[in-house]
């Protein structure tokens, strides 16, 4: 009797164990692609050039079918006195900073940084975020389940969620005008900027250009291109006359954010060795204990 049930035990364990592993492999198939080509695009934001006219905000809203409102309100400079962040109604906003060291106030446009190693892409449970070949990090509304883990993960706190909607709430963030770029057009904000504070181009060229500007105007800029190394590099790059923490750029370090969790995740599931070994170990303990018990009874 004892040996009979022991054989059953092994047989069933093998059969069911195999099924489990098979299922899990199927589940884990979809990993979002991250193609970092040399061709990927970026934007260089020169905060010393920006005049805070907010034309980019208007263009952005028009390009993304967001309510623009009366155009006169964009001439109201008092808006700039309040610190703002991109939200569901505005995917890009300009903040103004009074600096004692400068003659005039500093205007800083903010939007999604389009990281090279995006935390949101790594975090998203259903792979709704993806890094495109042109550098854009975009969100796929047909996949999203609204868990807001992207917002937890984002080091710049960019994705916004439509909390006011009971059905089909969207994650709203700058998509680098992905559709316009596919049509061969410039991002709406870049096209709208009247003073060329925004330069669109290949990220590698923009980095060269940024360093050229710094080298040629040492007293105009701090020697730091924000986005060159931050969280492993971002598509949007910033030049500033003051230290970046003074204009509310977080110190996020130079390591890609997913580097903290993906190695743990992958080590745990490398060919499913740890879970399967744990299963085998526990099964072994259970089986040995059972044998001892059977012997005692016999």
């Amino acid at each position: 009797m004892g040996s009979q049930s022991r054989r059953d035990f092994l047989k069933t364990a093998g059969l069911l164990g195999g099924t489990m592993v098979g299922l899990d492999v199927k589940d884990a198939r979809a990993t979002p692609k991250n193609v970092l080509t040399d061709e990927r695009k970026g934007v260089l934001v020169d905060t010393t050039v920006c005049i805070g006219c907010r034309r980019c905000e208007i263009a952005c809203k028009e390009a993304h079918d967001l309510p623009v409102g009366p155009l006169e309100q964009y001439d109201d400079r008092s808006v700039l006195e309040v610190f703002r962040r991109p939200d569901t109604h505005a995917l890009t906003v300009i903040n103004q900073y009074e600096q004692d060291s400068l003659q005039q106030a500093l205007d800083v446009k903010v939007q999604c940084m389009h990281c090279d190693h995006p935390a949101c892409v790594s975090a998203c449970i259903v792979g709704a975020f993806s890094k495109q070949e042109n550098g854009a990090v975009i969100w796929d509304q047909s996949r999203c389940i609204g868990c807001r883990y992207c917002m937890v993960a984002c080091p710049f706190q960019v994705p916004a969620f439509e909390y006011d909607k009971a059905l089909q709430p969207r994650i709203m963030k700058c998509d680098f005008c992905y559709d316009r770029q596919m049509d061969g057009k410039l991002p709406a904000c870049v096209e709208a900027c009247p003073v060329e504070a925004l330069t669109f181009g290949k990220r590698y060229d923009l980095l060269e250009e940024a360093h050229r500007r710094i080298d040629e105007n040492k007293d105009r800029y701090v020697n730091h291109v924000y986005g060159e190394k931050e969280v492993g590099g971002t598509a949007w790059l910033y030049l500033s006359p003051v230290e970046f923490e003074k204009i509310d750029f977080p110190d996020v370090g130079t390591e890609p954010v997913p580097g903290a969790t993906e190695p743990i995740q992958h080590a745990l599931f490398k060919f499913f060795i740890p879970p399967v070994s744990l299963y085998a170990l526990l099964g072994g303990i259970m089986w040995l204990g059972k044998n001892n018990k059977n012997e005692e009874e016999e």
Binding site: D27, R143, I145, P258
Partner: peptide
């Protein structure tokens, strides 16, 4: 959309 999780899952995601 919770049923998206098993069929669209992103294996890099801890969640």
């Amino acid at each position: 959309n919770i049923w998206h999780v098993p069929i669209m899952g992103n294996s890099n995601s801890v969640l």
